[in-house]
Design a protein around this nucleic acid. Structure first.
Length: 555
DNA sequence: AAGGAAGGCAACCGCGTGCAC
DNA sequence: GGTGCACGCGGTTGCCTTCCT
């Protein structure tokens, strides 16, 4: 690979050509060149041989001496790069394996653009290789309008960060903006992935860096970068949903409420804070922070550009490692997201509900960063919920009372938890879509799918619908009204009656996915406890919701 | 078949860091 | 403590190949 050009050149490269490429190497420094004109451009096999021979004799390092001792007209820097990227032994050539890709994704979610550190976890791979791969991946997925990260990574990052942020006083990695916000995020994300999914053939010893920090940093920026600022949220919702044929039907059937998004979002905005989550907080426990997770899911969704329409303006491709100033990250008001995405956030920040004023002071997103913001919102949502709870279902199909009784809550909650007022401007649908998209077999593009229609939406009621009355009874069941829970989850599996349902669901999804994906899906869904992470990222968040919420519960 | 566009990769460039003097 | 050097890292550029029209 490294010699493709050079080898080709070797046969045709004339002396004139070689000399024509000799230019001053300002980058390598005049001193190292010593006035000698150093060559730039592709390396030839002869040069490679010289360099290899030199390294064999003298070892790596002292690269500036290479030119002096070997006769190579290359600066030390160039020699080092050539050696490191192409000549050194044990370099693994060829395309990245799926395992490597998975690892890169996870590492990037964790580290950001720390290519060298990522390369340390990928034996035989160079930072440059990883970097190129990642940039290519970004472009590819951007074109496809797909999320950059598999949502399970995002969700796990958020979950774990959410659950441990308060108790972890861990490392102070230099790259973690979040740390500056006093959110120490452990490495549990990938540890859990590694242990549960058994995906990674190579389990690196990840440096003790705040997990998800880069991911979190990228959440807003990444999303905002890729999301056309002007795209309507409804449109985004449908577009995002449209990416996943297999899930589209499931979404249609399980969550008819999505159709409601097409109607007057602004009118429902106020309600969103009240019922923005399918899982109603326990009025007794006031576990309002259940809400905090789902917005987090939105947040994570924001970490993924779900729009199918690429932005016209130039985008910043480097996402998680965007080194936003701390103030930017912590201050949602100045976040670089376009207004349509964060207008609700701004409004929310600027006008917190009266009941949350106290909390706002202590938990203002402006002060504490993303996670605090989520907590803040969660609390606010909980408070506001009481005001909105009186509102009856407003989206039921007329005459379909019985169905609406089950649907409306789901619908309402879905509506409310969806596009309009998520601080991150994302809907559960987009989350779902991203979940599905990223859980594909290739980690990359997924074919677009048709958007669902109302007829689909109304066609089948959800089997289980959460209502405040039964919330204590079966939090598992209410999950079922969430599309994410179409896929297996550990939580759901706790339900004695779920196994059968899961099997049916799995088969259905597998059928929808078609031959290519069904087997993979089935294997993942049925064979392991990580099916939700592999395929139903959303269920990760849902599964762990209570724990996260409890951990997040404010005094 | 030809030309253009896009993708992928190798190499370059600038900057930051660590270390020795 | 200041300075210079070597090295490493991340971003960017440019070239080549492939694909599309």
């Amino acid at each position: 690979m490294s010699h493709t050009k050079n080898e080709r050149e070797d046969g045709i490269l004339s002396k004139d050509q070689t000399e024509s490429s000799l230019i001053d190497d300002g980058n390598c420094g005049a001193g190292t060149g010593g006035g000698v004109v150093l060559k730039k451009g592709p390396w030839t096999s002869a040069e490679d041989a010289i360099l290899i021979d030199y390294v064999k004799k003298h070892g790596e390092g002292n690269w500036n001496a290479v030119q002096k001792h070997s006769g190579l007209f290359r600066c030390g820097k160039s020699c080092r790069l050539r050696w490191a990227n192409h000549l050194r032994p044990n370099l693994k050539k060829g395309a990245f394996t799926q395992e490597e890709e998975q690892l890169i994704i996870e590492l990037h979610a964790k580290m950001g653009n720390k290519w060298a550190r990522m390369a340390a976890h990928l034996p035989g791979r160079t930072d440059n290789e990883i970097k190129n791969y990642w940039n290519t991946r970004i472009k590819r997925r951007q074109r496809a309008g797909l999320p950059l990260y598999p949502p399970e990574v995002c969700l796990q990052a958020l979950q774990d960060s959410h659950g441990t942020s308060a108790v972890n006083g861990g490392d102070k990695g230099p790259h973690d903006i979040l740390q500056n916000n006093s959110y120490e995020i452990p490495d549990v994300i990938f540890d859990s992935l590694k242990t549960s999914q058994n995906v990674l053939p190579y389990v690196p010893e990840l440096p003790d860096i705040s997990t998800g920090s880069m991911l979190m940093k990228g959440l807003g920026s990444q999303y905002c970068s890729f999301m056309p600022p002007t795209i309507h949220r409804q449109k985004r919702l449908r577009e995002a949903t449209a990416f996943f044929p297999g899930y589209t039907g499931a979404v249609k059937n399980e969550c008819p409420l999505f159709e409601q998004f097409q109607d007057d979002i602004s009118d429902k905005a106020a309600q969103s804070f009240g019922l923005s989550f399918p899982i109603e907080p326990d009025p007794a426990t006031k576990n309002s922070l259940q809400f905090g997770v789902f917005p987090g899911s939105h947040n994570l969704s924001n970490g993924n550009f779900s729009a199918s329409e690429p932005p016209l303006e130039a985008v910043k491709l480097e996402l998680p490692s965007l080194q936003y100033p701390e103030t930017e990250l912590g201050n949602w008001g100045t976040f670089s997201c376009p207004p349509p995405l964060l207008e609700s956030v701004d409004a929310f920040i600027q006008s917190p509900p009266p009941t949350s004023i106290a909390e706002s002071d202590s938990l203002s997103p402006r002060n504490s960063g993303l996670l605090d913001a989520l907590l803040h919102e969660a609390k606010t949502l909980s408070s506001a919920k009481n005001h909105a709870s009186e509102k009856s279902s407003y989206s039921a199909t007329p005459g379909d009372i019985a169905e609406s009784s089950t649907f409306n809550i789901c619908e309402t909650e879905w509506e409310n938890c969806g596009e309009p007022l998520s601080p991150m401007g994302h809907s559960a649908t987009s989350l779902l879509s991203e979940c599905i998209s990223a859980s594909g077999s290739t980690l990359d593009e997924q074919p677009p799918a048709e958007t669902f229609t109302e007829s689909h939406v109304k066609s089948e009621p959800a089997d289980y619908v959460f209502t405040p009355e039964i919330q204590n009874e079966a939090p598992i069941r209410l999950d079922s009204c969430h599309p994410d829970t179409l896929l297996a989850s550990n939580w759901l599996e706790q339900d004695s009656g779920y196994d059968k349902d899961q099997t049916i669901m799995t088969d259905s999804i597998a059928a929808l996915l078609g031959d290519d994906l069904s087997s993979e899906y089935k294997n993942m869904a049925a064979g392991t406890s990580i099916s939700s992470q592999a395929w139903g990222l959303g269920s990760c968040a849902w599964n762990n919701m209570p724990a996260v919420c409890q951990m997040s519960e404010l005094p």
